[in-house]
Amino acid sequence: MSLLRKGQQWGTFACVWHIFDATWQDPFKSAHLIKKYLIGLHKPIYHPLNQCGDHVIVINSKEIALRGDHWQKRVYFHHTGYHGGATWTLAWELHSKDPTMIVKKAIYSAMDGTLQRRFTMQRLHIFPDDNVPKEMLENVSNQIKQLRPVPNRLYEIPQEERDKIPRLIQYPSDYQLK
């Protein structure tokens, strides 16, 4: 193979590292987005038998947002295999024990249950906050766009800027604000 062909091959099968910020994102909807990068479905050379999946680093998995009352109602089932070994853990409980677990399980169950699934999962790196090892961060060359923009919360805005926001109504001076 000539050097030219080798370069072409090397570029075609390049393994790209992506980063995804999970702050205020729905893990179950993001899972379907991240899955495509992990499997390599976004590449024109995709084939289930060739190795074309990319690496994805998910940061801030602690800050995910679940829909409705899913924190209280969503249940993660586990069975140890022994008699009476079944446990049902609520989403908020699981999240307090391991803040990466909900994202991991969401992505795992978003993929088809093939033999490749566990190997594909090895290309996923989840961090509860934004403390990613430096040498891992140096690999990254693409950011996956978030599904929803992170809203600006009022309490995060400093008081001086908050005062500059134009007001629609002015409370009367004797109005009891509670």
Binding site: G7, A14, C15, V16, W17, E138, N139, S141
Partner: peptide, 27 residues
């Protein structure tokens, strides 16, 4: 570039003449 610290590191170099793109290659 992609995967700088991995064994599958890829670099994409472009060649320019007077700011005009001539071509590129991977390695």
């Amino acid at each position: 570039q992609a995967g700088k610290n991995t064994i599958l590191s890829v670099y994409h170099v472009g060649i320019y003449a007077n700011k005009e793109y001539l071509g590129s290659g991977f390695g």
